[in-house]
Design a protein around this nucleic acid. Structure first.
Length: 298
DNA sequence: GGCCAGGTGCGTA
DNA sequence: TACGCACCTGGC
């Protein structure tokens, strides 16, 4: 695979930026539109190239599409290499993964996967911070995306630290949410999830649950079991957290959309084990096709 | 006004 | 083990 090439660096109104080319088929739009993260929103003006802005890794940042790549605003060259290249999974060969996921099933299944990979081309599985991903997907249960974003934004506003450039609030630490307590969390409209967030925050803050150990854990079953000790974390929430925050690309979250796509396109399954290490990417392609492309009809 | 939203825990057979 | 059902809340 080609490594991204840095075309230009500089500052605009005192804010550093890095412009990149040779980023493969990477799509800012699809990556941030596919429901894997909840702290970014479109920020371009009408008629301008698509851009999203938000806070991740404790920094305020903008990703803007360019004709030959994209620009990161709010980062210098060093930030790009130490933070965003990994965050955006630009070090991963998606060409190779695509080939693997569209040849993992039988003939009929492969045709569906080819279509899903085609409409999802450019999506990257983000490597979000473990605690943020875990907490976010606890909030996501039995909930819709606008409200999920609203709740997370309220948590950040109330309990998050200011970003280093002072333009936003970081995702609150587990300690901050543990100290806030269930009642304060409930007041921020988290609903029945307040006790779940409080339980997760307490376990992490107390060191009872070591998130870094879960990241390092080679066994998916063990990692999943560890997260599922938290009240309110079932297989779906665990899988989402592990996929989007713990680097477990074999995680295969099955939600209502995946049930729809299975019913629509497959007699049974598909069997995630057939996708092996890249089940999570296959899942995201199928999910995106069903959720955002109306099921992938031509 | 009832149903649903990227589920989970709990009670019941 | 396998269901059905309640659950906070906001939008349609």
């Amino acid at each position: 695979m080609n490594k991204p090439i840095i075309r230009d660096t500089g500052t605009l109104d005192g804010v550093p930026y890095v412009r990149l080319s040779d980023t493969g088929n990477f799509s800012v739009f699809k990556t941030f539109d596919c429901g894997q993260c909840f702290r970014f929103d479109p920020s371009h003006r009408e008629g301008e190239p698509y851009a999203v802005s938000g806070v991740a890794m404790g920094r305020h940042v903008t990703f803007r599409e360019e004709d030959d790549g994209f620009t990161v605003v709010g980062a210098d060259e060093k930030d790009f290499h130490t933070l965003w290249e990994k965050y955006l999974s630009l070090d991963v060969d998606y060409g190779e993964i695509d080939l693997a996921v569209i040849s993992a099933l039988d003939e009929e299944g492969n045709a569906v996967m080819r279509r899903a990979a085609e409409v999802s081309a450019g999506i990257r599985i983000l490597r979000q911070e473990p605690w943020e991903a875990l907490c976010s997907f606890i909030i996501s249960q039995n909930n819709n995306i606008p409200r999920i974003k609203k709740i997370i934004s309220a948590l950040c506003e109330n309990f998050g630290e200011l970003t280093i450039d002072g333009r936003g609030k970081a995702f609150p630490t587990a300690r901050a949410l543990a100290d806030a307590g269930e009642e304060r969390l409930f007041e921020l409209k988290t609903g029945f999830r307040a006790k779940y967030i409080a339980d997760a925050a307490r376990r992490v803050a107390d060191g009872e649950l070591d998130l870094d150990a879960v990241v390092r854990c080679d066994s998916y079953a063990e990692a999943e079991a560890e997260l599922m000790k938290i009240r309110g974390v079932g297989p779906k929430v665990a899988a989402c957290a592990l996929l989007f925050g713990f680097g477990k690309t074999e995680a295969y979250p099955i939600d209502t959309w995946m049930k729809k796509v299975a019913a629509r396109h497959f007699k049974s399954g598909p069997d995630p084990l057939k996708f092996g290490k890249y089940a999570g990417v296959a899942q995201q392609y199928l999910f995106y096709m069903e959720r955002y492309m109306g099921g992938g009809e031509m």
